[in-house]
């Protein structure tokens, strides 16, 4: 998704002189074009996340449209207070692009796992949280987000996420239906949508028809969609590559909890403990119980 997102920002830079890009030394060559073509609007501020967010906010307070780019754990939690005050309280046009959401930096270890970011940022007024599921969607959502502007946080992968065709036009704030189904709805967000699709295929073999919904916009949450599904489904499930607390599942639970009548509901996410295992992204997903096999099995048991 990284290349699609940076490309969309480059395109915006061509069309709008206010577009600035501040990197936390995370370019790996894919920001070269922006740097070359828009001098004075590209800065690699090095590893100084608090400073980066402050500079971005200062630029935006002077009318610029700013994109910030680094690895999720550093550009979200390390500088959380700058995001809170300098960006969200000032309510300025800063979009934070975080690479490596969830376990995308799988074998990098716990410093690089990014499974608390959504919970932390969701509590900040004015913040939008976008979590695209694949490169095509990342491109389309970025194009839409650029028009709307920040404060925003875009949680992307590390690159090389599998692409697949979308049967809907992604719209910020609106859930997309990735696969249709009739019995239950499984809501997922981000690259883990591929596991949700596998869950659907596994359960289909057992006669359970699963709708897979993509909640690419975690904030503002598509409450209309959740309420609509609550009225017609036997059960709703959420799946996320994030701590079980405070992320997509928490957001959906908050919505459901206030309804007079609701279907069965269960969240799948990373248990609230340190995932002290190292391996591939798939290995980690399986190890913490958010791999397709585990999820399919638990859904089947839950429905019995």
């Amino acid at each position: 998704m990284r290349f699609e997102v940076v490309k969309a920002i480059y395109q915006a830079g061509l069309e709008d002189k206010r577009v600035c890009f501040v990197s936390g030394d995370y370019g790996h060559a894919n920001t070269e074009e922006f740097k070359r073509d828009f001098p004075g609007r590209y800065f690699n501020a090095g590893m100084s996340e608090q400073n980066i967010i402050g500079i971005a906010a200062g630029l935006a307070l002077s009318g610029m449209k700013v994109f910030v780019y680094s690895i999720v754990p550093f550009i979200t939690l390390r500088c959380l207070e700058q995001i809170k005050i300098d960006v969200c309280h000032h309510n300025v046009d800063v979009t934070i692009i975080g690479g490596g959401g969830g376990f995308a930096y799988a074998n990098a270890g716990v410093t690089h796992y990014a499974i608390e970011d959504v919970a932390a940022l969701r509590a900040l007024p004015n913040m939008k949280i976008i979590s695209p599921s694949n490169p095509t969607e990342a491109r389309l959502l970025m194009q839409a987000l650029i028009k709307v502007g920040g404060p925003a946080y875009v949680r992307i992968g590390r690159g090389k996420e599998p692409d697949f065709e979308l049967e809907y036009a992604p719209e910020i704030g609106k859930a997309g239906i990735v696969r249709s189904g009739d019995d239950i709805t499984l809501i997922a967000s981000g690259a883990i949508i591929t596991e949700a699709i596998r869950v659907r295929d596994m359960l289909a073999e057992q006669g359970i028809s699963v709708e897979v919904a993509n909640m690419h916009t975690i904030k503002p949450l598509d409450g209309d969609f959740i309420r609509a599904r609550a009225g017609i489904r036997k059960a709703i499930f959420t799946l996320e590559e994030h701590n079980i607390l405070g992320g997509l599942g928490g957001a959906v639970a908050e919505e459901l909890a206030e309804l007079p009548q609701r279907p069965l509901f269960k969240r799948f996410g990373v248990p609230d403990m340190w995932p002290d295992v190292v391996g591939s992204q798939q290995y980690l997903r399986d190890a913490v119980g958010i791999g397709a096999r585990d999820v399919a099995e638990k859904i089947r048991d839950f429905l019995r």
Binding site: G54, I55, G58, S62, D86
Partner: peptide, 11 residues
Amino acid sequence: LSLGIGMAIAA
């Protein structure tokens, strides 16, 4: 200071 630096670049 970081806010000020952002403003200074813009100026």
